[in-house]
Each structure stands twice: as C-alpha cells, then as structure tokens.
Nucleic acid binder design. Sequence first.
DNA 1: GCAAGGTC
Length: 972
Amino acid sequence: MSGSGGSIRVLNVAEKPSVAKSVATLLSGNQGQGLRVREGRSRYNKIYEFNYSINGRPCHMLVTSVTGHLMELEFEDRFRKWHACDPALLFTAPVHKKVPEDKLDIKRTLEEEARRCQWLVLWLDCDREGENIAFEVIEVCTAVNRHLTIRRARFSALTERDIYNAVQNLVNANKFFADAVDARQEIDLRIGASFTRFQTMLLRDAFVIDSTASDRNLVLSYGPCQFPTLGFVVERYWEIQSHEPEEFWTINCSHKSDEGTATFHWMRGHLFDYACAVVIYEMCVEEPTATVTKVRQQEKLKKPPNPLNTIQLEQRASIYFRMSSEHTMKVAEELYQAGFISYPRTETDGFSERTDLHAIVEEQQRHPGWGSYAQRLLDPASGLWKNPSNGGHDDKAHPPIHPTKFSSGESGWSQDHHRLYELVVRHFLACVSQPAVGAETTVEIDIAGELFSASGRVILAKNYLDVYRFESWGGSLLPTYEFGQQFVPTTLTLDSGVTRPPPLLSEADLLSCMDKEGIGTDATMHDHIKKLLDRFYATKDSSMRFSPTNLGEALVMGYDDMGYKLWKPYLRAVMERDMKAVSEGAKSKAEVLETCLQQMKACFLDARLNKVKLFEAMSVFFERSSRPSGDDQHTSGEFVRQCGLCHEADMVLRQNRDGNFMVGCLGYPQCRNAVWLPGSVSEAAVTTNVCNSCTPGPVYLIQFTFRRLEIPPNYSANHLGCIGGCDETLRQLTEICGTGSRLSARGRGPVTSNNNVPRSNTRQGPCIYCHQAGHSSGDCPSQSSGPRSVRPQSMNVQSARGRGPAMSNNVQQSNTRQGACIYCHQTGHSSGDCPSQSSGPQSARPRSMNVQSGQVSTSCSTCGAPCALRTANTIANRGRKFYSCQSQACNFFVWEDSLNNDNGGRGFQRANVSASASNPTRSGGSGRGGRGAGDAAGVSFVSATGDPVSGRRCFACGDPSHFANVCPNRGN
DNA sequence: GCAAGGTC
C-alpha cells in the first residue's frame, strides 16, 4: 500500500519518545510540510506524521518510538518455577524472547503501523543495546509485514545536520552488535538464575539470617554485576580489618618570622626505624642552623572539570550533597523529563563542535545566583571564556549533561532538584571557563645534611572557581626566604605517628571501581549499588561509606574459599571482551555462548560440590536454623526426562539415604510417578546419551554400576541403561534384585549421597579466566598477579562465634574440605566430623530461634531416646506443641494435638509406631490425619543444592502438616 | 522469588 500521493510510507522507530519527537521535529522543520501528532496504543509513545523526501523520493513519514528494550529473555514455562527443575539445568534450558505485558501496547502500535508501511527505518541509539532493540522492532514488524524494506539511521547527536545526514544515508542494521547483546542477556540470565536459586535454597533456611526481611522472602541473589560490586566493598573492608598499625617517626621543623610561620616537612617523609630516626634527629639538634638551599616560584593552574557525564554527576552529587547515586538519577530523570537538563544517562564527557555553547550560557544570565558570572563569561573583554576540555569518552548517542532550559527554581522542586540543577548549570559554566591560576612557592632548607621543605600558594585568578563553589583550592602564604639565607628553627621535633588503614569505600569510590572495571553501564551502576542494600549484602553509614553485612561478607568468603573469583570483576571483564569480539564479528554468538556457559556450568557444579565452604562461611556469622530447608522439599537430582504422567515437572535421578536409586518426578506429591531401580545398583549417573526408542523424549541414558555379588554372573557390572521402559536388562535385574522402594526395601547401610555427581568431570573444562586447559580457574596463573584477597586475621577469632550444633549429614559427607576444622581449628577432619562437637549436649546456644525448648516428657519408642515437648514459633503454628526425638539419628516428629484428637483414639504410641514404621525420618503430616508422607516416604533425596533430603514439610512455611502446594501462607 | 539492560 502506498502513502498519500504514491509516496513511500515509512515507519520510523526511535528508542524513546523524546528522540522520536526530536527526529520528527528536525526533519519536518527542514523540508517537511506540517507536522501532525496522533496517539498510539501506548500513551507515552506518540506517532508523528509529515511528508518528506529521502534521496529525492517522496515519503510519508511516521515517527514513533519504543521505550528501551521491547522484549525480555525468559525461560520456558516449566523452568520458571524454582522447584520444578535442577538449577544446573538453567544453563541449557530453552529460553525465548517475549514482549512483556507492559510493552504490549507498543507492540500493537508497531504492528498496526507496520502493516501499512513499505519501509521501516530504525532510529535506535547507535550502541550495542540500541542495535539489539532494532532487531526486536524488526521481529515485531516483519511478523506482520514480510515485505518491509528495513533500513537503519545512524546518528550521533540530535542535531539537524546529523539527523539529515542519517536519513539521506541509510544503512543496514548491524547483526553483530545485536548478537553481542543477545549473548550477554543469555549469559546473565542463566548465571543469575542458577546461582541465585542455588544459594538462596541452600542458605536461606539453613541459617537464622537476621535481616529485616522475613527470611522466607529473602533472596540471596547472584549477578555478574552485583557480586563484583559487593566484592569491592568486601575487599576494602578486609583490607581495613587486616591492617596492622605500624608506628613511624618523622622530624618536623617550623620557623616563625615577622611574616608568619613556615612549617617544614622532612623530605625523607618518615622512618619506621626508631633508632635511625633518633640518630638523625640528634644530629639536627646538635647543629640546628638551617640554610635555604632552594627557592622555587611557579605558576600553577587548576583546571575546570571535564563536561559532565553520568558517573561524574553521581559522584559529585554524592560528595557535595551526600545524595545516593540512585536518588541522584531519579531527580536527574525528573529534571530531564521537565526539560531543564539534557539526557542524564550519558558516558560522553566532551561537547561536539556543533553545540552552541554560547546560547546555553546566554540563557543563564538572568539567574540571581550565577547570572552575573554568565554575563562576564560572555563578555570577550573579561577573557574568562575557554572552550571546554574533552574527557575522551563518547557514547555517540548523547551529549554531556548540560542545562537545556533556564530556571531560577520551580515551585514543585525539592531541595535536591535545586541542588542538582545548580550543579549541572555551575558545572557547565565552569567547563567553559579559564582555569584558576595560582603562584606556588617552594622553599628547601638543609639542617645538618637533612633536607626539609615548605610550600605556600597564592591564588592569582579564581576564574572558574568563582562559579564552581563546590571546589576550593586551599593554600597558605609562605614567608619570604632567599637562597643561602640562614636561620635557627623555632621548633625541631621528633614526632611519632601510626599508619592508618584506607577508609571504607564511599559511593564515589565505588562508582570509580565499577567504572574502571567495566561493571554495569552509566545507566545501571546506581542500580547495582542499590541492589547491595536491598539484598542486605551491604550497608551505607552516615558518612555515605559502605560496609558489607555479615551476609555479604559470608557469601564472598564462601566463594573465595572455593577458589572461585565469582565476586571479582574478572568474569565480567572476560564476558565484555567476548561481547566485543562478537560485535566485531571476530567470534560468533553461538561460540561465545557455548564456551562461557560450559565454563560457568562447570563452575556451578563445582561450587555446588564445594557448598560446605559456603556453609562454613555462613556459620562464622549466623546461627544454624532448625527450620527445614525449603531446599529439602522439592529438590532435584540429575535430569532424566520430562514426566510422562503429569507432563509438567522433570523426572530426576535420586538416591535415598539407604543408597537406593530411583527416578522420581519433581512434581511430587501431586505427581507420584517414580521408577525404582534395582537394589544392586552401587552407582548411577545420568549421561548425555539419549534413548532413541522411548517417547516422549529425550530420555537420557543412565550409566549404572552394579554390585558384582548381588547380580547373576551372566550380567555385566556396568550397564548403560534406559528407564523409559525399553531396557530389558534393567527390567530383569529389577525383578531379580528388587528395588530400594519401601515395598521391597533390602535394608542396606547408607552410602554417600553424592556418588551420583561425577565430581571429576567438573574440573576438566578450560579455565574460565584465560580459556586454557590444564588448570582450574581457581589456579589460573593469569589471576595470580593481583593481590589475593587479604583476609583479616581476626576471622579465626570470629569463627568461634559460629560454634554450634554439628552440621547436618550432608555437610559431613562432603570430602572436599582440606582446611582446618572451623570449630577446633585442627586439620584431619572436617567441621562436620569435629569430635569437639559430636558428644555431649548440642551446644549452649539455643537450638533454634524458631523453637523454644521444652521439657522432656517421654521417650521415643522408635529409638528409645527421650522426646522433648517443644513449642513451635513459626508463623503458621505459633504456640502449637510438638514432640520430637532428641536423638540425632531419629527424626521422629509429631504434633501434640494430633495425639489427642478424635481419630479413633490414636495415642502417642500408635502415632509413634506408625511414623517410625513408614519412615525413619521425620514423617511430615503423618500425625495430622489429612495427608500422609506418601508412598515415597523413607526416601532421602539429593536436593537442588546437593543435600540429602530428610524431613518432609512445607517449604513455604515449614509446617509439617501440609505441603507447599496447599500452604495457606503462600503468596503472603 | 533469579540477571542486566533499555526506558516511562
């Protein structure tokens, strides 16, 4: 379909409404005939229309916009529920792009307009993200109109010349740029989701984390930007903690004359050797006459700042006004929206030659505060004007932040609006001003062969400092000295001092660290900082300085102990290099994704195997909780197939505490699909081989090892088998040996639950840092040059605080720890096996914050150990009494009220026997009539975090009387 | 309930 008068109908799409408006205004003003505006489906994204001509061809132009990314990357449905799959699968689970609900209006506008156009011209920002958004727009538009001619407009500033050049020289969109962002998005999502789920489910319920958020809602997130940001905070904190003050000595000298007092500093600075300092000092005292050996006078300039970009704005607002970067950006956004300042998210710190700087200054002449300075600036006779410097950064999309409209203050402005606008204006005026000029005098003297110096400064011309009141240039007047002049000092002292640690990181420091290491973008850095506070990983004190919380420190410590630098900026730096390679076409998106995700998955699996390090680090700061871990309920082993019964959840390979293997549905208890494996299996591991006959596929084959003595001689001890139903060998061995199911339990002793995780595989991939094989990333030589994190020595002292009950079996079973036990500090056993923890009363510490200890009332008939009557303090069951066995081995548990209810006069003994007969572990719900522990009771699963699972309780509230799917507290 | 990146 053609536009009016046979012209080409062109749909132009910009990244944001303001750009659409500018493009339309600039183009229609140039040669257009009447600019019309109409509403689109989305109230923010208007549609501008006018006639134009591109390369001599008449066009009917429609200019509209998106608001940043139109799409989001997400996992397919069945991987979105936290408990529906093993987090390790998130490295390979299918993902797709989707337009979220709040962007559907924009999508509809694009679809409606694209149907009626012949051309699509993309005016997205000319950076990688912009290019990626361009392809999102292309996807939406071409889905409804396959015949669209697609062109890209390249512009670097919203000026008439740039926009005109762009539209007359349309190019093709750059897929390499878009691919780089696709890769970044996918890596961020997979790493973020997998590690976040892993560490949240592992730690949240295992410890009493005293954050202000309800522990149940606490998310221990991991992200490739937020963690390195936390790393900066923790590292500085450790540096301070490990600082050992050292005493030093220095000689100070002063001389008072008619003109004033000069203070001379020892040019050796200071000495740590007291004897040495004393010897030198005594030499000086014996021959105290000073001779002036040098008098130097120099003109010094103090330059005005570079034009303002986002990071500078955030840093300066933090230093000058103590405003957080997040708040600064919020206020700046409002000033921008109201038209008072230019776009606040920019890396650019140099003005384009085309910017009319004078016009910006002219507007400000009326201001009562800085108007007279602006007038002086414009007066050529003052000589105050100087073209601004250039900081060398250019994002090719936005100019430095500058005032765009005069204001002497608006009625609706807060104090921070006033401050920020003033900062932007004064900064701009400073940028176009001459530097301050000072005269510096340096005098050097010699006393008994030792040199001392003093300096003074006089400001000759303040220039930009007159308007930039936030900066000062201190200096003191120095009395006049002449070369060769001699005098006897007024004072000559030997003074001591101590070295001091560096200060905690300020917000400005943190932004500098992030900027230097490429963590986040100018538009997101403040978000990452805020995230640390929101997640209770760090706090900000009254002087705007950051300290890690116990939680933040423990997480970094845990990963540091594993040898992984997940909290360092290197990972992001490697990713950034890869993204650059993709955007240049040097590497393909698929190649980068495969390498990076493979390495990160190996890292993830290894971290999971080494989770004891996280536990130990957390134990330093937090009490262990007696709450059942949310992780323990719906947990996962290795993925085998999708469940053919419920078609919703995965079936995973698991091993119970007796060592028996089964493949069970994660949808349990709603779905009870399970395949029990022969009792003679000693090891089982899911392979990457897929059965080619069983459906629905894929059904992954499992490598089995059978105990030789438990299978007939004509069967092999090693077997690659399928649980999909096609495997005759497996069927026969199941018949011959029975299974580990309750119904055919054979009562073997426990074996290690982690056998099914092939640890050896995880370390063999190439290093995530240097991409070389032959060493793990923890040992990477490329990473060893920087200082290994400095941990304060006091950490060992602190760890005594964490003394508590012996860790649960899952921790004891881990053999990964080689270091000293955190309890007794001896080597040779892990903290889980510490003899100091294994006998006697558990600990003087309350066993749990959630359970108040009660008196022993009776004995458990299962194991004979005494049972305690306790009172629950969970939200769902506060005040409710329950019995639980004191023995560590016996997990008997029953509600007191369920013993006396009228279900046929069921007594304590009965309930007890019933529970113990079906399940030696805590048998959730068995006492409350409604729901039993189910057919699979007695199974101890390997959890998402690798832990064997014991008690069966609601993972949402911890109540054993129901499961999470029917939890009354859910959704709170 | 997970990330980071656009933007409103």
